[in-house]
Structures are given as C-alpha cells and as structure tokens.
Lab assay of single mutants.
Amino acid sequence: IEKFKLLAEKVEEIVAKNARAEIDYSDAPDEFRDPLMDTLMTDPVRLPSGTVMDRSIILRHLLNSPTDPFNRQMLTESMLEPVPELKEQIQAWMREKQSSDH
C-alpha cells in the first residue's frame, strides 16, 4: 500500500509539472495564426496569391488538392516561399510568452 501511495504522489507531481509546462498560445496575434486552421504558425510560407500559411497545413492540403485553398489556382510545394522574418517574430513572441508564464 505504501508503494501505491508513493506512486500516486509521483503521478500527481508529474501531472502538476506538465500542467505548468503547457503554455497557452490562444492569444496569438492574428498575423501569427494560420488563416485556414486558426492555429499558431511555426513555419510560415507565402503562397503566390500573397496569403501566408503554416507550411504543415498547406502541405497537408496539397496532398488532397494541388491548389491554393483560397483561389483554387494551381499550387505546388516548390511555389511556397518561406517567410523567415515572420517566423522569427513568432518565435520571439513564443519565447516572451514562455518567460512570462514561468
């Protein structure tokens, strides 16, 4: 029984630690959010139409349809242009958020 109590305490400790580690990014500025999924972008790319999306989301879309989801023009992965300035701004915002939450 004592071992179970210790195990339960350890589990509670881990759960509390994980809860502290989770950071809420739901208040991200609109320009940091993917327009299709409304999630925080981690690897922004510009489509030929000028729309900026997260790379993982547009690549997932391209698996089903080789088109720009906003104007239905033909689109391939090679046409995606990285946006390193925005990526750095997002990373800086995330770092600031992490340091203010801890």
Rank of each mutant, 00 (worst) to 15 (best):
M94N: 06
V83I: 15
E96H: 03
I23M: 13
R95N: 05
E13Q: 08
M74I: 11
S99H: 06
E22Y: 12
P44V: 01
P69F: 00
E12V: 06
P84S: 12
L40G: 01
V15W: 03
S99R: 11
S78D: 10
L47P: 00
Q98K: 14
Y25S: 14
D101I: 05
A8L: 10
K3V: 04
N71I: 01
M53T: 15
H61Q: 01
K10P: 13
I14M: 12
T51A: 08
K3L: 02
S78N: 09
H102R: 11
K5N: 08
F32R: 14
I90A: 05
V15R: 12
P66T: 05
I90S: 01
A19T: 12
T51N: 11
E77V: 05
V11G: 09
M37V: 07
K10Q: 11
Q89H: 07
T42K: 04
K97T: 13
R72G: 00
K5R: 08
T76I: 06
Q91D: 11
M74G: 05
R46S: 10
S100H: 04
D24Y: 11
D54N: 04
V15M: 09
S26I: 15
D54E: 11
S49A: 15
K10S: 15
K97S: 11
L6P: 10
L6H: 09
M94A: 14
K10V: 14
T67N: 05
S56P: 07
W93Y: 04
L62R: 01
A16T: 09
K97N: 15
L40V: 13
D43I: 00
I1F: 02
N64T: 04
E77N: 10
A16S: 11
E81Y: 12
V15P: 09
S78C: 10
I23G: 13
E13L: 03
L40I: 09
S56T: 05
F70L: 00
E13A: 12
E96L: 08
K97Y: 13
E9L: 05
L80V: 06
R95S: 12
T42P: 04
A28D: 09
D30H: 06
S49P: 01
I90N: 00
A92V: 11
D27A: 05
D43E: 13
D43A: 03
D24L: 02
L59R: 09
F4D: 06
I1K: 10
P35Y: 03
S26T: 12
M79R: 06
R33G: 00
Q73D: 04
E22Q: 07
L36W: 00
S78K: 10
E81G: 06
A19G: 10
P84L: 13
E12S: 12
M74T: 13
L6S: 14
M79V: 03
L47M: 04
P35L: 05
I14K: 13
S100R: 09
N18G: 05
N64I: 08
E96D: 10
S78H: 02
E77D: 07
F4L: 13
M53I: 15
M79F: 03
E77I: 06
L86R: 06
T42S: 11
S26C: 14
A16R: 04
S26A: 11
P82L: 01
S65T: 03
Y25D: 15
E81A: 09
R33W: 02
V15K: 06
K97M: 15
V15I: 13
D30A: 06
R60P: 00
P48Q: 07
R20M: 05
I57N: 05
S99N: 10
R55C: 01
W93F: 14
E12Q: 14
L62Q: 00
R33E: 00
T67A: 01
M53R: 00
P29E: 01
N64K: 02
V15L: 11
E81W: 02
E12W: 02
F32I: 02
M79S: 01
E77G: 07
A92H: 13
E77M: 07
D24Q: 14
D68N: 15
D27H: 05
D38S: 02
I57V: 12
L36M: 01
E9T: 08
R95W: 05
R72Q: 01
Q89R: 11
K10M: 15
H61R: 00
D101K: 04
S49G: 04
Q91N: 07
K10G: 12
A16G: 10
L6V: 10
D27V: 04
L6I: 09
P84T: 14
L63V: 11
M94R: 14
S65L: 01
P29R: 05
S100P: 15
E12L: 11
A8V: 08
N64Y: 15
K17M: 14
L7D: 03
A19D: 07
P66F: 03
K3Q: 04
Q91K: 10
P82V: 01
A8D: 10
S56C: 08
K87M: 13
E2N: 14
E22N: 13
L63T: 04
E96M: 01
Y25I: 02
A16V: 09
S56F: 03
S100G: 13
S78E: 12
N18Q: 05
D101V: 07
P48R: 02
P44T: 00
P48T: 02
R20L: 14
T76Y: 06
V15D: 07
